[in-house]
Amino acid sequence: MTTPNDSAPAAPAAPKPIRLAPIVTPDAKDFWEAADREEFIGEKCSDCGKFRFPPRPMCPYCHSLKREYVKLSGYGTVHSWTVPRHPPPFGFREAPIVAVIQLQEGTRFVSNVVGVKIEDVKQDMEVEVLFEATMGNHKVPVFKPRTK
């Protein structure tokens, strides 16, 4: 939707994001708020130091309730992937590459691999995080082939 405006038109706007916004549950609030700031964080036990995903109040390894959110390296590998053809998923102009990313820190995260052709996706290829906009002014972490 546009708002009537008398001033001269600005530079052409980037296409409006159509990707669905994340569904934020209370236990995942910190993760998604960080994503909005383009920070890819993980939940780590403050006592035993192990990472866990998805976020939850208790460490399954030592049962500590103490937890911290730490910035992750953003590096990982493509552990498993597919391209949804039918039905075309909501939120995409072209079929995305959906992948299970094996993160360097040991947990896995379902995301997209961008900036690569489908025929060039390789199992276990190294990727790094970046952020893409969603509807409702949110951002989600996606991954592209590792450059550094």
Binding site: T25, P84, P89, F90, G91, A95, V98, V110, N112, V140
Partner: peptide, 14 residues
């Protein structure tokens, strides 16, 4: 499952 939705993985087949 909720975590997959913004990435286009929104059916059992995906």
């Amino acid at each position: 499952l909720l975590w997959n939705i913004p990435f286009g993985a929104m059916t059992p087949a995906s």
